[in-house]
């Protein structure tokens, strides 16, 4: 049974069909990639899944329940976590604090518990901290725990964003261009981290430009072009697909 199922999803901006009748599914414990040239609708698709944009029609099922009309925080609460193409960390907070925010959906101390500093809330804070430190350890950025994220290098910021997304113990992790802005060494590093995360039993859906990364780590690939799905197959098949080759390398007859 698919973990994520997208059925006939549509979203237009004015006259532009950014996502046009797209359907596909993501199987549990796999890495699925969405590729396509610039403007293919990849990020729009992501924003539809995470609830940042409402869909015009179509539906999205997560664990067989519809999440189509839910708000981003509700979707996060169900176990879908995401990163952003242009890294969105919380400035002025340390790497540790950023990851602790990711733990929000797994903790519950509210306004009263906070104001009165109840013992339960203190215990919870302690476990949030421990948990977040473990994640920093997993992503090999523990030495930067107490540094303001604005002062970290780009690759390190990306790792903090991964850790933050993982802190909510998601079932599905959405990675929006995880290799954007990284050099080849950093990209290889990110690829290693992504497979490390997948081995922890987390399903991953990623959008990516970097072909080498996608071909290396993905189990399945969806190709979008001008908002439409043109292929959904294994990496080896995608590499042989004439339509895909035409999109990426151009038309022989052109």
């Amino acid at each position: 049974m698919a973990l994520l199922e997208i059925n006939n999803l549509n979203r237009s901006f004015g006259g532009l069909k950014a996502v046009n009748n797209v359907s596909f599914s993501v199987q549990p414990d796999t890495i699925k990639a969405v590729i396509g040239p610039n403007g293919a609708g990849k990020t729009t698709l992501f924003n539809l899944i995470s609830g940042n944009l409402p869909a015009d029609n179509g539906n999205i099922l997560f664990n067989s329940t519809s999440i189509t009309d839910l708000k981003p925080y509700q979707i996060a609460g169900l176990g879908i976590s995401r990163t952003f193409q242009n890294i969105k960390l919380f400035p002025g907070m340390t790497a540790l604090e950023n990851v602790m925010i990711g733990r929000h959906v797994k903790s519950k101390a509210g306004f009263w518990a906070g104001m009165l500093n109840l013992p339960a809330s203190r215990r919870e804070e302690k476990s949030i901290t421990e948990n977040s430190l473990e994640l920093l350890e997993l992503l090999e950025i523990a030495p930067f725990a107490h540094i303001d994220v604005s002062n970290l290098a780009f690759g390190q910021q990306r790792a903090v964003e991964f850790a933050r997304a993982l802190a909510s113990e998601p079932k599905l992790l959405l990675l929006d261009e995880p290799a954007a802005g990284l050099n080849i060494y950093e990209t290889a590093e990110i690829a290693r981290l992504i497979t490390k995360i997948q081995k922890k039993g987390i399903t991953i859906l990623l959008v990516e430009h970097d072909m080498s990364l996608v071909m290396d780590i993905s189990d399945e690939i969806v190709v979008l072009c001008f908002g439409e799905k043109i292929a959904d197959d294994l990496p080896a098949e995608i590499q042989q697909n004439p339509e895909v080759i035409q999109i990426y390398l151009g038309d022989d007859n052109a």
Binding site: S50, Y73, A76, G77, S81, L89, M93, I101, V105, S168
Partner: peptide, 15 residues
């Protein structure tokens, strides 16, 4: 503080 820093990211984190 997260809301203050980046509201959409805070929302995406389940806040």
């Amino acid at each position: 503080r997260a809301i203050h820093g980046a509201e959409d990211a805070a929302n995406a984190m389940g806040i």
